[in-house]
Design a protein around this nucleic acid. Structure first.
Lengths: 142, 142
DNA sequence: GACATTGTAACTAATATCGTTACAGATGGC
DNA sequence: GCCATCTGTAACGATATTAGTTACAATGTC
């Protein structure tokens, strides 16, 4: 249970909210579709709310709905909202600074990492929630 | 100790091998620079050997060296050699197929995931080991 | 044959993610 | 005002992954 499925869950959740535009959806209902516990959903919704993608209401008739139109939300927003870790981690233990390679490798890797993060953000930002919801409705990806 | 630093280690290791071109390097020596245990290095070298990036020799005077020139190895090769997990995981538990969204979301996410994998591979393949070693020698990234 | 080195299995420790229970706080209907 | 319903969040446990470590067989050099 190590890999991070928060992004997948987030896209799933947002698609459901997109399906019930302007109507509060309860965490119980979402949990039923994602097949998990409502608390897991509420935790996730908290992150999405902080990022300004959704708004929640407590109380009776409470629930959550999108804070923007589906075409104003792109997957890069979602990705950064759930703060997935980096694609690869830098060294766990600091390399040996007495070695010419050990001394400089971290800076180089850091540079590569930033480059990749940018690439991913660019790719993800080409998908809006509206696009995704379209694909989901049509039933096929591709 | 959760994030995957194998890619970082692999690049570090390969840079060291590039520095000692055509000369066997011992896992002990590499471990000294990476600041970890020789066994961890040998495990990693095993993966790199399977991918045809390095060759190892046992016995006295054994060790490991590059199997190709540094400019014939790119970071996409390295990335796939150490088989880092995907950038994001698909759903841990299967979504509810009775929900229109749950039924189709996985295919859509799978599509997005493949797209990202391709993007990452493209970006990484623009760096050769020779490039990386150059940066390491110059001391600065940028 | 002695010795150095790799390859690999087995175990431990640390950590992250997810699921679950529990409960306080908010909100609306009556 | 009271109650049912919902969110927000804390606390805990189960599970999985990663890395570090020890141990030892297999391999190759001298």
């Amino acid at each position: 249970m190590a890999a991070n499925s928060q992004f997948s869950m987030a896209v799933h959740v947002l698609s459901m909210l997109a399906a019930s535009r302007d109507e509060n959806v309860k965490s119980d209902c979402i949990a039923g579709s994602v097949n998990t516990n409502p608390v897991v959903i509420r935790r996730l919704l908290g992150q999405l709310a902080q990022a300004g993608l959704v708004v929640s209401q407590s109380g009776s008739n409470g629930g959550t709905r999108l804070a923007k139109c589906p075409n104003e939300i792109n997957l890069a927003d979602v990705y950064s909202a759930v703060s997935c870790g980096e694609v690869f981690a830098l060294h766990a233990r600091e390399p040996n600074k007495d070695c010419p390679v050990g001394r400089n490798i971290e800076a180089v890797l850091c540079h590569v990492q930033k480059r990749i993060d940018r690439t991913i953000a660019e790719t993800l930002s080409s998908y809006t929630l509206a696009n995704i919801f379209d694909m989901v409705e049509k039933g096929a990806a591709a």
